[in-house]
Structures are given as structure tokens and as C-alpha cells.
Design a protein around this nucleic acid. Structure first.
Lengths: 208, 208
DNA sequence: ATTTTTCTGTTGCATAAGCAACAAAAACAT
DNA sequence: ATGTTTTTGTTGCTTATGCAACAGAAAAAT
């Protein structure tokens, strides 16, 4: 039995008492990552950022989450002393549970749990795909290649040479881990050299 | 029931006929990524690289796999036209199966398959951790921060300020997506400024 | 409706990091 | 044992990219 995320949540909510749903206002801290707890969260609405402070105090937005995305410390066991927390970017609703609870809860060996654990693997696989996409872009050698790589993905996903960015240009620079002004400059060059057309946050690819 | 990778493989081999084991010599192509097949592979011995050629012909080593690591197209559904394949770096033994087969094979609802699909999620989670580690390093802003970030992780994993690199310096530059000579220069500076001691591929951290 | 904040767009300057090219050392192969 | 290939280590030159600083546009808040 194959579920999409909405069915998954509906089934889960109907069947399980162990999960908690909470609401957050903009800028509130949703969770702080504590490895041993093995918490897993689903963002039901709104958007949130995974923020890292390293030992020198530098801040990075490591990931940006939107509707139906998974996050939590099970996904992020990195051997460093960095502080990691998730902060609401807009008002959010979040579902909390423990990974181990989800997997092993039912003593009665119910069908529902079988379905659940099968689908969990699929959702985690979706996450892997997101991460691999990001790595694919981060490993490109120049700002130009990063931008064009990202645009190509959006173009293919939209079945169109024209598409609108899913987040602000400021966030895009952060996602690609490049300086925003350097990115804007490169976008200008791409426009001048006839590779792209740009109207605010709507882009059209002009090549190939 | 919680399995480690070796137990997992033993159980799988004993119980499942649907899986294939093959051997490869150095530089042979182990698999080419074809999204619809949803293949999943486990590297039993040796080491291999996931290689990407983009449309301009640039080659990148996207990932490097060693014993017991998972790879395959289920993990890498990126919407681009890039050619992706896995190439043996040394002689390798590889286990092949389809993700969907693994999850749904048994009609008889056997206990073994229940255990299997639970553990599959865990193995995929390990993969997520690896990917997040890589992203953590790739998003650092300077070569120095990337190197020190990587060294810090190794140091923590080894419970020691002294450790040996798990692969060559050439590969390290590739893993961090930086120019090798620039990395060597930075290592020299780090030595001169007293941050590290370096003896071949053995590093000692001198700070904090 | 007006203020405040965030986002976009731009530019000059400094430098970190890429590129190219080479030699010595080490690892591998015959 | 000897030749071949890969890895390490280095350095001069060039340039892509980061940084700082600013102004106008857009969005959000009051």
C-alpha cells in the first residue's frame, strides 16, 4: 500500500496517540537538535530554517524546510560541537515523534504499522534525493555553474523554460552557499550574454 | 530486531533469491544510473566512485563509496541530463537488487521481511547522515574552514587529536570540491601558523 | 496611510582560490 | 629491479568571488 504524505499523516493521526502537533509563531525555535533523542518532525504548514552556529559564532542556514518536509536530529548526526536548531520563518504547524516510536510502537503487529514503516523508508529516500540535489549544485566549481544548474533543475521540473524561483534571491544565494552580491553580478552577466531572461524572480532560459 | 550491516547481509543472502552478487575489476563500470529501475546496491568489498559527466563534458567524482555503503539510482533522482555511473576504484564485490523487490517481495508476510524493511530505513538514515556531513563541509565559506571542519570530524570520530586521512589528499580536495593545489597551500599555511602538524597523511590538531 | 523591515540591484576594492606547470616521492605494475 | 603511473608538494600568475557599502523597490507591520 503506497501512501502520499497527506494520507500518511491522516492515517498516522487516526491511529497513533504518541505523536504531538504544535504551532509556532514566526521566529520561534521549533526544536534544538539533541542526537540521543532521535526526534523526527514533519512540517505541516509554514516554513522553517535549520540554523547552525559553529564554534566561532558563524551563522549558516543549513536547510530550508517547506510543507511536508521531514527534519529532526535523526537526519543530522554530524560529529561536531555545532549548535543546531530549527527556527520558524513563518507561522508553522509541526508534528513531532520519535523515530524509534514510529518504527516499533505496536505490540499487536498491526497492518497499519507495517504500511507505516514501509512508507517511512520512501519519505526518507525523498529526503536523500533533496540532499543529493543540493550536493550536486554545491560541488559545481563556479557561481555560474551553480546558478545554471539550479535553473536547469527548475526548468525540467516545470516542463518549461520559464519558471518562478521557489524562494527569494537572498535565500538562493544561501542555498548555493555563495555571496549574494556576487550572485547578482553573475545573473547580470548571464542576462547580458543572452543566457537568461529575468523579470523579478521569474526566469526564462534562452539556451539550447 | 536490530541488525548491523553484516547480519543484514547474511540474513538477506540466506532468505532471498532475488539478489545478485557480482565482482568487478579496477576501473570497470559497476552500474549506470537509470532512474526508473530503482536499483539499490551494497558495496561488499573494495571501493568505488560515483562519477558524473555534465552536458559540457566536465567530470566530477560526486561520491566515494567504501565497504558496506549503499548506492544506486534510488538515492539519486536529480532532474538533470547528467550521465551518472559508478566505477570500481579497486576490485569490488557488489550486491544488486531492486528497492521495490526488497520492500514488497514476500506474499507470505514473513517476519524476515518485516525486520528487513525496518532495517532498510536505518541504513538509509546512515546515508542521510553521510550526505549531511558532506553538505556541512561544502557550505563552509573558505578552504581553511572546509579543511578544519573535516579534520575536526575525523578527530572526534577517532577520539584523538591525531588521525590518518581515510583517503588521499587528491581525493580530499575532490570531496571538499576545492582545487588541490590551493588546498595544499592552505595546509602549508595551517602548518606554518601552528594549527596543525602534518606527517604525510597523518594529521595532528594543535588548537584548543 | 505611514513607518519599518526585508529584498533587490549595483559597484569599487581586495584577496582567496583557481589554473598551469613542474619536480620529487611514493605506489604500482611488469 | 626497473619502468610507469599516481600522489604530494610547491610557486607565479590571473581572475572569480567575497566584502562593504549604498539606494531604491517591495513587502510587512503598525
Amino acid at each position: 500500500m503506497k501512501l502520499d504524505m497527506n494520507q500518511f499523516l491522516f492515517e498516522f493521526e487516526k491511529n497513533c496517540s504518541k505523536l504531538q502537533k504544535k504551532s509556532f509563531k514566526k521566529d520561534e525555535i521549533i526544536t534544538t537538535y539533541i542526537a540521543k533523542r532521535r526526534q523526527i518532525c514533519i512540517l505541516l504548514s509554514g516554513s522553517a530554517d535549520l540554523v547552525r552556529y559553529d564554534s566561532s559564532g558563524n551563522k549558516t542556514i543549513v536547510e530550508h524546510f517547506t510543507k511536508n518536509e521531514l527534519f529532526g536530529e535523526v537526519f543530522y548526526i554530524v560529529a561536531t560541537n555545532n549548535e543546531l536548531f530549527v527556527k520558524a520563518r513563518q507561522a508553522c504547524e509541526v508534528l513531532f515523534f520519535s523515530y524509534d516510536t514510529l518504527k516499533h510502537k505496536c505490540k499487536q503487529n498491526c497492518d497499519f504499522h507495517q504500511v507505516l514503516s514501509e512508507n517511512l523508508a520512501d519519505f526518507i529516500l525523498d529526503k536523500v534525493t533533496l540532499l543529493n540535489t543540493r550536493i550536486e549544485l554545491l560541488t559545481k566549481r563556479s557561481i555560474r555553474d551553480k546558478i545554471l544548474g539550479f535553473f536547469t533543475i527548475l526548468s525540467i521540473r516545470n516542463f518549461s523554460k520559464t519558471f518562478t524561483l521557489p524562494f527569494s534571491l537572498t535565500d538562493l544565494a544561501d542555498y548555493l552557499s555563495i555571496d549574494r552580491s556576487a550572485m547578482m553580478r553573475e545573473l547580470k552577466y548571464l542576462r547580458e550574454e543572452g543566457f537568461i531572461k529575468k523579470n523579478g524572480n521569474t526566469i526564462t532560459l534562452l539556451y539550447k
